[in-house]
Amino acid sequence: MFYPNSPQTSPQLTQIPYGQQYAMMQRQIQQPYHPFATTEPQARLYPYHYQGPIQQEQGGFITQQSTAASPQYVQMRVTPVDQSIMSGYPNQTANGSSSSSFNYNIHPQQQQQQQQQQQQLRHHAMPVGSVPLQDDRYRKQLIVNYLAPDVTSTDLHELFSRFGELDGARIIYDKQTNMSKGYGFVYFCHAEDAKEAVERMSGYEFHGKWLKVGYSTNPLNIVPSNSSPYVHAGSRGAAG
């Protein structure tokens, strides 16, 4: 039997160049792979992502010199942007860049009308829970959420009447099932009393439920100042 490094198959040491006398086997001759043993700084910083320098080929596509990437890492192929796409944008300079302001050559009167329309939209648009300043009635009506099913309009009136005089209180019921929808409205005579009720009743436990109280901004629920107070009856038909 002959071994790869046996004296019968191995040459004389004098015939082997210096430095390879003890590297006779194939696994010894093959050098191990060192990912950080390279002179390129990109490979030292990113050993798993770097795959060699990027070269520009004919046709405008950018390719990489090395083989496919590892399945664990996804390499994105980048193509140059066609400058003709950006030619339609206004205020574009000769080098292809555009300024931040756009001039669509709008007539001054049209621009003024658009600004007025935007101001009107901001004036009428009102986020949930906010209180408008032009109508004091919005500051007097509250919406009470997360009410228990057994709470009546009379219970709601008695709960909030300790903060001040009320114009009314009612629970909203479903017309088909005649069941409470879980929320109601309270109408105060003074805005200061309503503000105190919002601050003190939010998070209050009532009939096993934690109440959420806020201003009601729905104009359909506003009680006119010259109208008669609501009837605080315990029956659902009268309260709904």
Rank of each mutant, 00 (worst) to 15 (best):
T154C: 14
R27A: 03
Y173A: 06
L166F: 01
Q51I: 03
Q58V: 06
P4S: 08
Q134D: 07
G129K: 11
F36R: 15
G96M: 08
S180Q: 02
S202Y: 14
E192Y: 13
T63G: 11
A125Y: 10
S66C: 05
Y204I: 15
G234W: 13
Q134V: 12
V186R: 01
D155G: 11
V81N: 10
Y46T: 14
A37I: 04
Q176W: 14
G203C: 12
T177M: 08
V231E: 09
Q55H: 07
V231C: 10
T39Q: 14
A148K: 08
P71R: 14
H123T: 05
P11K: 15
I222A: 03
Q31A: 10
K212H: 11
V198S: 05
N178Q: 02
Y3A: 11
E205G: 12
E158G: 10
S180D: 01
M126F: 09
Q119V: 11
S97E: 04
P17L: 03
R236D: 03
Y187F: 01
S153K: 15
H207Y: 15
Y183M: 02
V231F: 14
A68C: 08
T93S: 09
M76V: 04
S227M: 11
Q58F: 04
K209H: 04
R139G: 05
P127K: 10
R27W: 03
A125E: 03
D82N: 14
G208K: 14
M24C: 10
S216H: 02
Q72E: 07
I62G: 14
A197Y: 00
I62P: 14
V231K: 07
P149Y: 10
A197W: 00
S101P: 12
Y3R: 14
F163I: 04
G129L: 03
Q56M: 05
Q64K: 14
M86K: 15
Y48S: 15
S130H: 14
Q111N: 13
A169V: 04
V144Y: 00
V151P: 00
G184H: 01
N5C: 04
G88P: 09
Q176F: 15
S202I: 15
I16T: 14
E40H: 12
Q176A: 08
V78H: 15
K195F: 14
M126W: 14
I222G: 02
G203S: 02
P41K: 15
E158T: 06
I172F: 00
L220Q: 02
P90V: 08
Q8F: 05
T177W: 14
Y22V: 08
Q109N: 08
N226M: 08
Q116I: 13
E165D: 12
Q51A: 08
M201R: 01
P35R: 14
Q119K: 14
L142R: 00
D193P: 14
L156N: 00
A194N: 00
P149H: 14
Y104E: 04
Y89V: 12
S180R: 02
I29V: 08
P7E: 05
S180M: 05
F188S: 01
S6I: 06
G96L: 05
D135K: 04
T67E: 05
S101I: 06
H157W: 15
S6D: 10
L166D: 00
F185G: 01
F102M: 14
T217H: 02
Q55A: 09
Y46L: 12
R137K: 03
D155R: 04
L45E: 15
G129V: 05
G164I: 01
N105P: 07
M24I: 11
G96K: 14
N218R: 03
I54M: 07
T177D: 03
P80W: 02
Q58M: 08
L133N: 07
M126A: 10
N105S: 06
G52I: 04
Y46D: 14
V144C: 09
G208N: 05
F185N: 00
N221F: 14
D135F: 05
S225P: 07
F188W: 00
Y89E: 05
P4E: 06
A169F: 02
E40V: 07
K195E: 11
A23Q: 14
Q51E: 09
D82K: 14
E40Y: 07
E196V: 13
Y138H: 11
F102G: 12
E196L: 14
V74M: 10
E158W: 15
G184L: 00
Y215Q: 00
H123Q: 10
P132T: 07
A233C: 09
E205T: 14
S130K: 14
S227D: 05
Q92D: 05
Q75N: 13
S97M: 13
Y146N: 02
Q120D: 04
G237P: 06
S87I: 03
Y48F: 10
F102K: 12
I62K: 12
D150H: 13
K209Q: 02
S202H: 05
G164Q: 00
N103F: 12
A94C: 13
Q110C: 11
G96R: 14
P219V: 01
A191L: 03
N178G: 13
Q92K: 13
P17S: 08
P71H: 12
Q112L: 11
R27T: 03
Q119G: 11
N91I: 05
P132M: 14
R200C: 10
D155L: 13
M126H: 06
Q75T: 06
Q55F: 03
A125F: 13
V131S: 07
K175Q: 11
L220K: 03
K140T: 04
P71E: 08
Q120W: 14
F163T: 02
E196P: 14
I143G: 01
G96S: 07
V81Q: 09
V78E: 11
Q118R: 13
